[in-house]
Amino acid sequence: MNRLRFWFLLPAWVWIVFLFIAPLVIVCAYSLLTRGTYGGVELPWTLESYARILDPLYGAILLRSIAIAASATALCLVLAFPLALFISRSKRHKNLYLHLVILPFWTSFLVRTYAWLFLLRDTGLFNTVLTGTGVIRAPLSLLYNDAAVLIGLVYGFLPFMVLPLFATLERMDPSLLEAAADLGARPWAAFFRVIVPLSKAGIWAGTVLVFVPCLGAYLTPDLLGGGKAVMVGNLVQNQFTTARDWPFGSAISITLMLLATMALALFNWRAPKEML
C-alpha cells in the first residue's frame, strides 16, 4: 500500500502546501509588514496593523460582526430545533422532508440572497402588498439594514443547523423519552431535561457550522446591508481592493482565521464522532 498511498496523497499535499498553506503564510507575512506607497507591502516589520484592529472604529466592526453572527446562530438554533424534531418524528415522508431542507442548499447561494433583495426592496413584494392593501402608505425601507442582513444569513445557513440536529435526534433511543414520561416528566420538561442535553453534540456542530461562515460573511452584508451594515468580511475586501492597505487587510484575515480555527477546535472537541 505504501507506494500507492504516496501517489494518491501527492496531489493533495501539493494542493495543501501550495494553495492553502503558502497563501496563508504570505498573508501572515503581509500582516506584519508596512503598507507600500503605491499599494502592496514593504519593510520594516511591524505589529501596527494588529494594533489598528483594536482602534475603536475597526474594533466596533469586529464586535458588530460577532454580534450579528451570534444572533444569526441563535435564531437558526431556535428555528431549526422544532423542524429537526418534526423531521425525526415523521415516519412516511422523512426523506422528502429532509430533502426539502437540503434542496435550497443545492441552489445558488447568490440566487437565494438575491431573492431577499427582490422581496425586501422598496418596490419589492412585501412593500407592494402592504401598500396595495393599504396597511401602510409609503413603502418601508426593509433593505440595507442589520435586520435584512440577519434574515439573509439565517436563510442562507439554516440547513447547516437542521442537518446536525436531525442527525443526533434521529439516533436518540425513543424509549428514553418514554422513560422520561414514565418517570413523570411532562412534554416540556422531557424536552429540556432529556432531548436538549442529549442533542448537545448536534447543537455544538450546528453552532460552529453556522457561526463561522456568518462571521466571515461578505456577500450577504454587501448585497442586503448595502454600504451601511459593514461586517469584517467587507472590511477585508475593502482593504485589498479600494483602500489598498494589504497589511491591515491581512491582519484582519489572520484574526478571522484564528477565530475559525478556535471554532474548529471546539467542534472537534464536542461534535459527535461520526460527523468527523
Partner: peptide
C-alpha cells in the same frame, strides 16, 4: 473548509 471565503480569496490573491 471553515476558512471564511473572503480569507481564502484574499490569500490566493496575495499568493
Amino acid at each position: 473548509l471553515v476558512t471564511p471565503e473572503i480569507v481564502t480569496g484574499v490569500s490566493l490573491l496575495a499568493l
